[in-house]
Amino acid sequence: MSIIALCAVENIRKWRVEMKKFLLIALSSVLALGMLTACGKTNQSEPENEPGTPPDLVGEWKQTNSDAEDAWQAATIAGDAIEVYWVSDNGDTKALYWAGSFDAPTTADEPYTWESENDKDQTDMAILASGDDTKTFTYQGGVISYEVSAMGVTQTVKLEKQ
């Protein structure tokens, strides 16, 4: 490789590191604000499935405990995969947070929990994606929940089907 190409590659790496730091600081601020103001809120959702019927989790999900009016997390479950995105600018901007496996429930027992394995082919190139190998998702009472951590701050995100 030429010196010019090596310099260009190094500059791109430095830019990605700086951009990742900036975005993590911004997102951790939103998460911290959400954690501070979410205390005391409860979710009164009722499950949508009949007794004895496994819930259908396939579809679009949106965060219900974000206190930012123009930013939240959203998920899509299709087939045997789940993708979770950071959404901002009232939905105009999306960044991948998680892409992984999904195991549909086979009973109506709640809570239902599955361990999603990271699809690193998708997340390795996404600046705001989780680097975890697995992520635990829980479904109960019409809500999917999971933990999100950024810069030492952890928040439980709650999603409802749209």
Rank of each mutant, 00 (worst) to 15 (best):
M1H: 12
M1I: 08
M1D: 05
S2W: 04
I3K: 09
I3W: 08
I3V: 13
I3G: 08
I4D: 14
A5K: 14
C7Y: 09
A8W: 04
V9P: 06
E10D: 08
E10A: 15
N11V: 11
N11G: 11
I12N: 08
W15S: 11
E18K: 12
M19A: 14
M19N: 11
F22E: 14
F22C: 05
L23W: 08
L23C: 11
L24R: 10
L24D: 14
L27G: 06
S28D: 11
S28Y: 02
L31S: 14
A32S: 11
G34S: 15
M35C: 14
T37Y: 11
T37F: 10
A38K: 10
A38H: 11
A38T: 14
C39S: 13
K41N: 12
K41V: 15
T42I: 10
N43M: 09
S45Y: 06
E46V: 14
E50A: 13
E50D: 11
P51T: 01
G52T: 07
G52Y: 07
D56P: 10
D56S: 12
D56W: 01
L57H: 13
V58R: 13
G59M: 00
E60W: 08
E60F: 13
K62A: 12
Q63S: 09
Q63W: 09
Q63T: 08
Q63E: 15
S66M: 12
D67M: 11
D70P: 06
A75Y: 02
I77K: 05
I77C: 05
I77G: 07
D80Q: 14
A81P: 06
V84F: 06
V84H: 02
Y85F: 15
W86R: 04
V87R: 13
D89K: 12
D89Q: 15
N90Y: 15
G91V: 10
T93D: 14
L96N: 00
L96C: 02
A99K: 01
G100I: 03
S101P: 02
F102N: 09
D103F: 13
A104N: 11
P105Q: 09
T106P: 07
T107H: 10
T107N: 08
A108F: 07
E110D: 06
E110Y: 06
P111N: 08
T113K: 14
E115M: 06
E117N: 04
N118Y: 01
N118P: 01
N118A: 03
D119Y: 01
K120A: 12
K120H: 10
M125H: 04
A126T: 02
G131S: 07
D133C: 00
T134S: 04
T136S: 12
F137M: 03
F137N: 02
T138Y: 01
Y139R: 05
G142N: 00
G142H: 01
I144C: 01
S145T: 15
Y146A: 02
Y146V: 04
E147C: 07
E147P: 07
S149V: 04
S149C: 09
G152A: 03
G152Y: 00
V153E: 12
T154F: 02
T156K: 03
V157L: 06
V157A: 03
L159T: 03
L159Q: 02
K161G: 06
Q162N: 12
